[in-house]
Design a binder for these strands. Structure first.
Lengths: 152, 152
DNA sequence: TCACATTTAATTGTCCGCAATTGAATGCTC
DNA sequence: GAGCATTCAATTGCGGACAATTAAATGTGA
């Protein structure tokens, strides 16, 4: 009788898509790090800046929804961005519960320095753009199914 | 003249595979959390246990290589597992620089309680096994290319 | 209008993740 | 075998991530 093949053992590390995703996220982080160091940003801070470069003057809540992060993560992160003079935090006058995040001139200007980042990342992946777009779409679909399960 | 299409703007959040991976990793974490709470483990702790269930009595270094984590992460994590009586940490007698991690009987026993986890995760992904295997292999290949760039 | 629920950020505490440093053990070279 | 580099784990410090709680502002219904 053959022992159970390791190729289908569901408890094996190598067989777990979650570990693949988890370790790929860390690998990306390590590739981004030297590029983002030049901008004075961490990766999560870079994500917040991407949101703001698309649309300025947004409440914390909206940033959280786009990045799937809560105020426990965002509040201190935004305070660090404010300390670095990249954003300004002001309470909304219409709804005093909200804090609106706006780019400073330096925050806006940083976008130009960031333009070369995606290109460098693309090179590091050693993939074609179309391959990456396909993978990205699959991963996003998977993520959305997982998030749907959580919400239920 | 049409303005630049957002579908190809490389600084758009939606177009970045890294954000897809990053947010998928968090989504996985949130799905795992209630399952792992029943085992008294966090996700990184669960990964360490997966390594040990495959092979016991391993040096910290080897765990780190398999999980792409360093001692700054593993040392405190392993101390918490030891405090939970799941592993024992002992300095190797052959090479006193190494700390060997061995499962306790409780650590071994926990494997049985963990067997149902991959099944639950599979259900949450709402994917076929073959789809997941394909995606996993693609993501691992991407991760390995990224790690190769870092090492260079 | 007054109680009550809801929304929103902020706070606190715990656990990762990693860079940088330290210190002990080992290996290597002359 | 003495000096020197390397290896390995531990430590420190900083920045996420998130659960749980708090507190203020807003909305709602009797």
């Amino acid at each position: 009788m053959a022992r159970k093949s390791s190729a289908v053992d569901p408890l094996r590390l190598d067989n777990q898509i979650c570990f693949a995703v988890y370790s790929a996220a860390h690998a990306f982080n390590r590739v981004y790090k030297p590029l983002l160091d030049r901008l004075g940003l961490t990766y999560p801070q870079y994500l917040v800046m991407l949101v703001l470069w698309e649309r300025d003057d947004v409440p914390v809540k909206e940033i959280g929804e786009k990045l799937f992060l809560d105020s426990g993560t965002l509040t201190p992160l935004l305070k660090r961005l404010e300390a670095g003079h990249l954003v300004k935090r002001t309470r909304s006058s219409e709804d005093e519960r909200q804090v609106l995040i706006a780019l400073t001139p330096q925050g806006h200007a940083l976008k130009e320095k960031a333009r070369s980042v995606p290109q460098s990342i693309l090179a590091a992946t050693d993939c074609s753009v179309s391959e990456l777009v396909t993978m990205k779409d699959e991963i996003v679909a998977l993520r959305d199914r997982l998030n749907a399960v959580i919400g239920e």
